[in-house]
């Protein structure tokens, strides 16, 4: 665990000092230094807004390289989930582009993005509550429905990864515990054989032990070479598994760097624990 124990004054209201220093912002560019040449997902100057309101996301740029895990951190309302909604196509972009594997997917419908291999695990797990665990998982492989044998294989792999789900395959997914639902959500995404994974707040509403288990799985996925964009409010957990991270505040990127750099920076704590 790389996160240091926060000191007392971290939460004190006295730290309500002015916004991030510009120097920190400019230091953030070395992003590309560690990243391989062609990113699998690149987000270029993205802006988004809900119907008619002011932009919730402004001018956000971000790259996800192959085999890399990038964490997006920030407090509630910073625009993290909005970012993910635009990436998955549930929210239209006002400006900017999203390039996935060299293809501009900015205007693509949500289901077409999944077909291309950009798969999302939504916040709150979003079980299809009345369907069984197995049906939930199978539907995760909807885009590969023409390949039943391959699907069966992937299903077995998922069950091997989460033996618990195998025991509960005929149960309605809505009746599972939070941790089991998280497994279904992750397994369901794996069924789509993603080429990149978008994870939205995997720790949402889960008990600490389950959060740790979930992050172990995420770490495993990263080690297997799957590129992951992780949206998370639990900063130290996220930074422990991430290669790089960005911090969002009020819809803008206010800091970026390697996980180690950000773990040591004040910026993260300030974002979470006060102005």
């Amino acid at each position: 665990m790389s996160a240091e124990t926060p000191s007392d004054d971290a939460i004190s209201p006295a730290c309500a000092s002015p916004a991030p220093s510009p120097t920190k912002g400019s230091r953030a560019s070395p992003v590309a230094a560690g990243a391989p040449a062609s990113p699998i997902l690149s987000i270029e100057r993205l802006s988004a807004a809900y119907d008619g309101s002011l932009p919730v996301l402004e001018d956000v740029s971000l790259e996800l390289a192959r085999g890399e895990l990038v964490a997006v951190l920030g407090a509630n309302g910073a625009g993290k989930s909005t970012l993910l909604r635009t990436l998955s196509g549930l929210l239209p972009c006002l400006a900017g582009r999203i390039i996935f594997e060299g293809v501009d997917i900015t205007r693509l419908a949500p289901d077409r993005r999944v077909v291309r291999g950009l798969v999302q695990v939504p916040e709150g797990r979003q079980m299809l509550a009345a369907l069984t665990v197995e049906e939930n998982l199978l539907l995760g492989g909807y885009v590969h429905r023409r390949d039943p044998a391959g699907l069966r294989r992937t299903l077995d792999e998922v069950f091997a990864l989460f033996p618990r789900l195998s025991e509960r395959r005929t149960q309605a997914a809505g009746l599972l515990s939070g941790g089991e639902q998280q497994m279904v959500a992750l397994g369901r995404a794996m069924m789509g054989r993603p080429r990149a994974l978008l994870l939205d707040e995997p720790s949402f509403g889960l008990a600490p032990k389950v959060v740790s288990d979930t992050f172990r799985v995420i770490d495993g996925l990263r080690s297997s070479g799957l590129p992951i964009l992780l949206i998370e409010q639990n900063a130290s957990k996220a930074l422990a598994v991430a290669d790089r991270a960005v911090v969002l505040r009020a819809g803008r990127v206010v800091a970026r760097g390697t996980a180690a750099e950000l773990a040591a920076s004040e910026e993260v704590r300030r974002s979470y624990l006060g102005d």
């Binding site: 549930l90 999944v114 798969v119 009345a130 369907l131 539907l139 909807y142 885009v143």
Partner: peptide, 18 residues
């Protein structure tokens, strides 16, 4: 199956590629 998925939650269904 996809009809039942839509009945439960159309947004999730879309995120599954339906």
């Amino acid at each position: 199956r996809s009809m039942r998925a839509c009945a439960q939650n159309p947004l999730t269904a879309a995120l599954l590629g339906i």
